[in-house]
Design a protein around this nucleic acid. Structure first.
Length: 208
DNA sequence: TGTCCGATTGGT
DNA sequence: CCAATCGGACAG
């Protein structure tokens, strides 16, 4: 996996980890720690559910057809940056941009197992449950919004890290069709959702 | 500028 | 099952 940069509290993943095909990176995100250090405090959770969105050929991907718009521009940025978008007039979704710069692969973070800063997460969620199941809930609990669009995960306050020994666990990884992309014709069948089998924070789904 | 719609969520 | 709620995408 290459060198891991230390600093901050956790072992941050290096850019080389992200500079690979999205379908290779996506399942490897399961079990890693998503960390956000802010003035309000630090929140972190183990990633337990993701979806890969793979470039111009993927009809469910915002970069389908190779189009570049103001919303999706960050998808074409360097590996190890954030693609955050606003949807349904009220929700944010957070993706990790991967692959070579200019190649729009992104991995949507759909669910976390919260491990640090649960009180802060709950406060940000207005006390509602579930806390971190679903991409918009992850963003709300972690304090992620449009200001993080394009943010560098290798340098900034928002990053992915190897979980420290006490939090590290082994997950059985399964895959299924992606959620919410029924409009995407043939792409709706692609098994590009990856999740930790049996984990209670994963989105309940018939394919589980 | 006008219209349509969403990689969702929460309440009925 | 459906309303919320509005920026983005695209046609004109």
């Amino acid at each position: 996996m290459g060198n891991v940069v230390t600093g901050g509290g956790f072992s941050r993943l290096p850019r080389s980890f992200y500079r690979r095909h999205g379908l290779l990176v996506a399942p490897e995100l399961i079990g890693l720690l998503l960390v956000h250090e802010t003035g309000e405090g630090t929140t972190a959770g183990l990633i337990v559910e993701v979806e890969a969105y793979i470039g111009p050929e993927d009809r469910a991907c915002h970069a389908f057809g190779g189009k570049v718009t103001r919303r999706n521009r960050a998808m074409y940025g360097p590996p190890g940056t954030a693609y955050v978008y606003f949807t349904y007039g009220m929700h944010h979704c957070f993706n990790v941009v991967v692959a070579e710069e200019g190649v729009p692969h992104a991995v949507l973070i759909r669910a976390l197992e919260p491990v640090i800063g649960l009180d802060l997460m709950s406060e940000r969620r207005g006390g509602r449950l579930p806390l971190t199941t679903g991409p918009a809930r992850v963003c709300q609990a972690m304090g992620i919004d449009l200001r993080h669009n394009g943010a560098d995960l290798v340098e900034g306050n928002l990053y992915l890290a190897l979980p420290p020994a006490g939090l590290s666990r082994r997950f059985e990884i399964r895959s299924s069709r992606r959620i919410g992309v029924d409009y995407a014709m043939e792409a709706r069948e692609y098994p590009w959702r990856f999740f930790a089998a049996g984990n209670r924070h994963v989105t309940p789904n018939p394919d589980n």
